[in-house]
Computed example of a mutant assay.
Amino acid sequence: MTSANEIVDSHTTGVDGLYAPFELKSLHLRNRFAMAPMTRQFSPEGVPGEDVAEYYRRRAAGGVGLIITEGTYIPDPAAGESPRVPRIYGKDSLSGWRRVVDAVHAAGGAIVPQLWHVGVTRGERPDLNPEVPSVSPSGRTLDGDPLGHELSSADLDQLRQWYVDAAVDAQRVGFDGLELHGAHGYLLDQFMWERTNLRSDSYGGSIASRSKFPAEVVAAIREAVGPDFAIIYRFSQWKSNSYRARLAQTPAELEQVLTPLVDAGVDILHASTRRHWLPAFEDLAGPDGVLGLAGWTKKVTGVPTITVGSIGLDSEFTTALRTADGTAGVADIDKLLQQYERAEFDLAAVGRALISDPEWVNKLRAGRTDEFVPYDNTYRQTLH
């Protein structure tokens, strides 16, 4: 296996490129590394405390250009299931986020919140607001079983407004932009996916129709926050119940899925994968056949992209994040550099490697790769 030190020597241009500044609207980043959003439930009653501020500050001090926070619930009482997940509404939660933002800025980083609504994956008996039924486009789980409340037209109007309220509060708190969580089978993704969107109105049916509500959310947020506040949209092909699920079977379908979001005001697309280096459409031949999901996203939309998925580690998150004894060893970034040199992405989101090693970005740049800390799930279970 090639060492990261050897990568620095043999791909100097690529490594230097990852440390080049990136600027887009309200985002002014010192390099191309982002911290991927990772939920760990360290915010009792939805309020991020001083320990959360210190957690994010350490990663900013360790060299990360952009912090994307863990998912944070929008004001809908049915947004999520855990009282320990932070919220992006309410005086105490917003005050907590202001402390987080100030700490990250003082360390030289930028930060955006991830606005999150889990939809039907909240289940039947959530710990948070159990008296409130879970909601979804068609009252169906990811497996297709009936559950919860199908959103009416009036419900969609209110839901859209809750997203706007969260976005406006994020801007007021001082965040540098925002990310919408539209991946992994959560609410916005449930509208996109034909298995969970069985609606017969204008929000269901074709790919374009299934993209309509997420695009309306983006457009409403854009109108509320103005033209210069950066909007990132995270999407994925896979769902939490199926890693083989696909929103788009072909690049043409991917373009149909994403174009309405871009037209509505999305500035950056965050293409969530488990292994960033895998081809997005593996049956395609020719030079484009090697493109990952971020690469295809950039090709069909023309907007900047974020790549993510096991960067710096030798196993995907399912085996090293969700299991109690999960571990992952240090890996080189050869493939990441190759993708960057092919202009497949603009930002690289690092996840578990930053949980175990807050200084990962600075260590890579300084060639201190022998000091990288392998991932162990005990790091996820303690806030440090």
Rank of each mutant, 00 (worst) to 15 (best):
N5H: 14
I7F: 05
D9Q: 15
S10T: 15
T12E: 15
T13R: 15
D16P: 05
G17F: 03
Y19A: 07
P21D: 09
F22P: 07
L24R: 12
L27I: 05
L29G: 03
N31V: 10
F33W: 13
F33L: 09
A34P: 03
T39L: 12
T39G: 03
R40G: 07
P44D: 08
E50H: 11
V52F: 07
R58M: 13
A60Y: 06
A61E: 15
A61T: 10
Y73E: 06
A78G: 07
R87W: 09
R98V: 08
D102P: 02
D102T: 12
A107N: 10
V112K: 10
H117M: 09
T121W: 05
G123V: 02
P133E: 05
P137G: 05
P146I: 09
G148R: 08
L180T: 03
H181E: 05
Y203F: 15
Y203H: 12
Y203D: 13
G204R: 05
F213C: 00
F213A: 01
P214C: 01
I221C: 03
I221L: 02
R222K: 13
V225F: 04
D228M: 14
R234E: 07
Y243D: 13
P251Y: 05
L261W: 06
A264D: 00
V266M: 05
S272N: 02
G292W: 04
L293F: 11
T297Y: 07
K298A: 12
T305K: 10
I306H: 02
V308P: 00
I311N: 11
D314S: 12
T323Y: 12
A324V: 13
D325A: 13
A328V: 10
A331R: 13
E359H: 14
W360A: 00
N362L: 06
A366P: 01
A366S: 13
E371F: 05
Y379N: 11
